[in-house]
Amino acid sequence: MDFSGSESVPGPQEEDLLPASVATAVKVVIVGGFGVGKTTLVGSVSEIRPLTTEETMTQAGAGVDDTAGIERKSFTTVAMDFGRISISDELVLYVFGTPGQERFWFLWNGLFEGALGAVVLVDTRRLEVSFDVLGRLEDRGVPFVVATNAFPGSPDHPTEELRAALDLPAEVPIVRCDARSRESSRDVLMALMRYLYDLSAQPV
């Protein structure tokens, strides 16, 4: 008469445990289109293996007969993955990666509430993919920085050229990064924090 079944839920591993003294958690969001490197960036900075909160699979016609005449609607897999960085004994930072396309904006519910700010990760070969995201963040009043992920063979546009194309105000930082690199990814977060720090200094 016991629920030994619940034992099969794997908890965090020993090295992933947070100290009991942690009192506050804060979060930032990494937004970007498919394949732009969000998960890579989250994985690079996270001290735990990235986790996902949602995921669905497509079960395209898995032996299901078609007598019902219903077109099988498959769901795109949506992964909102996240990582964690222990800032201090009292403070922990969570980094969430979420798709930027409009059709995934439903995922933003609950995600941006309370978020310190956002990083918009862009691929300079497909700059226009990020336009909707930037507009959406401006609409929501979420402070953000733009990071261009350096892909092999991607054009190296001067920052001011990108700023003009993205029509961003001068104060919004645009940084280059290599999402595979821990330092580079950390620097992106640093850029966001410094920007937020500067914003907080301004008179409201």
């Binding site: 804060v26 800032i87 201090s88 330092e183």
Partner: peptide
């Protein structure tokens, strides 16, 4: 343990702490 209050600009001390923490990464 609730996160920082919503819909408020983060306190400078908090941001300083985060920046400090990130630098140590």
């Amino acid at each position: 343990r609730a996160p920082i209050p919503k819909a408020a600009l983060p306190a400078r001390s908090l941001l300083e702490a985060v920046i400090h923490g990130l630098q140590r990464l």
